[in-house]
Design a protein around this nucleic acid. Structure first.
Length: 480
RNA sequence: GGCGGGUUGGCGGAGAGGUUACGCAGCGGAUUGCAAAUCCGUGAAGACCGGUUCGAUUCCGGUACCCGCCUCCA
């Protein structure tokens, strides 16, 4: 069996992965707070975990992995959005969850086995909070329940900080009812205009961290294998989860492996609304950037390094995707072809790809192995390459790879001018066939002048892409 | 102020104490009515200063610079 090694934030080492139960490998990923479209940074942990889950299923078996990712649907940002729009919280969260599914589906991310909503696990949270109070790890004060960080000596271990150092750094606002400045909220009171649930401490709502402790325990048990999220969640969110879960269940281990991905930047800068470089996954998809291209760019940087999204990378990624998919289409790949190859036992990803992924999810190394593969063979010879693409999650539908590769006169995206350009390409092809090179060159020139990228692919196909600022009227003038 | 991470060839980006990463661009060639694409080949690196070692870009220490977290954030 392939040995998977993962960098564990808890041990600060790259350790061999040992599942608690190889028949049921269990993972939990902190999901989104659902009040708005997912931005590009939100996609990174999703894709990292997607590849991890695919790898684990490859190694331990399709049915041997349970993947949980939550939706945080109770949060002050959601309340604010509801107040600002006059809509109900449920409308907003339902809509946002639907968007999230659309966007992550477009990136080829598998749906988790469970996607619990925080609001569906309030009783479990209340029970866990009560348990923490009983055990002397939490206390009620002025309608709040707070976790007592001094009661948990290991507090700070996951993120490598000490309570005293953090207080010395003193940038936390200290509520007067806190015993210690670092104590954090498990439960807080709700006003009449805020969502709330009855509890032993009055009507209120949960603090941010308790939901993940409660839901992971409910769905995966008090001890499970892998817990992940962005590095920014390491403190305080994950630290607090550890404190809650380990104090509520001292006999259990909670998460054995902690996986944290580094942040995303855009053109070398932190993505932020003030810098004007903030965009969502949907923005990119609407601009015609295929989900496969977004995935490629994401996987081209190791998850523990800051990832810089640039247009240059997206362009480069698009070239590779088109080239790879083109080769597969040319070799006859389709759903039925893949079925035949699987039945024939040819469906095995490249060892170099699996080995790279097993080495702390070296997705960049996996892509490098794909670059080296000879694409000139026929379907059976390309099967290891295709199975590798499949393992990396690049293919949702083998019948669609042709259109993603923009083969022939087809194109992706829904630009209204695609049809026009396609017609012109056919006209050019006909002109070339008639040796009317003047006409052929005139069409090419016109397309080039409006910025259409045109390529003849090996085997006689055509590929084109429209520029972002494509202007159809200009094309009309030039063609006339 | 506290904590953590990074610095690789023109650009992007990996692994490994000693052997070609890989991609893009460049250069040379093949192919093509022309262009692009495609195919083959090829030069180029490890912030700085010390230390360990037969040998370090890879381990250790220091310096500089960059980034993130400590407050909602993936």
């Amino acid at each position: 069996m392939v040995e998977i090694r993962l960098t564990n934030t808890r041990t600060r080492r790259k350790d061999p992965f040992q599942p608690l139960d190889p028949q049921n490998v269990r993972l939990y990923l902190c999901g989104p707070t659902v009040y708005d479209r997912a931005h590009l940074g939100n996609a990174r942990p999703v894709l990292v975990f997607d590849v991890l889950v695919r790898l684990l299923r490859h190694v331990y078996g399709e049915g041997a992995v349970t993947y949980v990712r939550n939706f945080t649907d109770v949060d002050d940002k959601i309340n604010a959005r509801a107040a600002a729009t006059g809509r109900t919280i449920r409308e907003i969260t339902d809509e946002t969850i639907a968007w999230y599914h659309d966007d992550m589906d477009a990136l080829g991310a598998l749906r988790p086995d469970h996607e619990p909503r925080a609001t569906e696990f309030i009783p479990q949270m209340v029970a866990m909070i009560g348990h923490l109070i009983e055990r002397g790890h939490a206390y009620a004060a002025e309608g709040h329940v707070l976790f007592d960080v001094r009661s948990f000596p290991a507090y700070g271990r996951l993120s490598g900080r000490s309570v005293d150092d953090m207080i010395a750094g003193a940038r936390v606002e200290v509520a007067p009812f806190k015993r210690d400045p670092m104590d954090f909220v498990l439960w807080k009171p709700s006003g009449a205009d805020q969502p709330g649930w009855d509890s032993p401490w009055g009507r209120g709502r949960p603090g941010w961290h308790i939901e993940c402790s409660a839901m992971s325990e409910a769905l995966l048990g008090p001890s499970f294998d892998i817990h992940g999220g962005g590095i920014d969640l390491q403190f305080p969110h994950h630290e607090n989860e550890v404190a809650q879960s380990c104090c509520a269940r001292p006999e259990a281990s909670f998460a054995n492996v902690w996986l944290h991905n580094e942040m995303l930047q855009v053109e070398g800068k932190k993505m932020s609304k003030s810098l004007g470089n903030f965009f969502t996954v949907r923005d990119l998809l609407d601009q015609g950037v295929p989900g496969e291209v977004i995935r490629f760019v994401m996987l081209s940087t190791h998850y523990r390094k800051p990832m810089d999204w640039t247009e240059a990378k997206a362009r480069e990624a698009e070239r590779h995707i088109e080239k790879w998919f083109y080769a597969l289409v040319h070799a006859g790949y389709s759903r039925s072809m893949v079925r035949v190859l699987k039945e024939g036992g040819a469906w095995k990803p490249l060892d170099a790809v699996v080995d790279a992924l097993a080495n702390d999810l070296n997705t960049s190394g996996a892509l490098a192995a794909l670059h080296e593969f000879d694409l000139s063979g026929r379907a059976v010879q390309l099967a290891p390459f295709a199975a590798s693409l499949d393992l990396l999650g690049f293919v949702s539908d083998w019948d669609e790879i042709g259109s993603i590769a923009r083969i022939g006169v087809s194109s992706v995206g829904d630009h209204p001018a695609n049809e026009r350009v396609a017609m012109l390409l056919l006209a050019r092809q006909e002109a070339k066939r008639m040796k009317d090179f003047a006409t052929a060159d005139r069409i090419r020139k016109a397309l080039q002048d409006v910025g259409v990228e045109l390529r003849d692919m090996p085997g006689g196909g055509y590929s084109f892409s429209l520029p972002a600022d494509f202007d159809e009227r200009k094309l009309d003038e030039l063609i006339r």
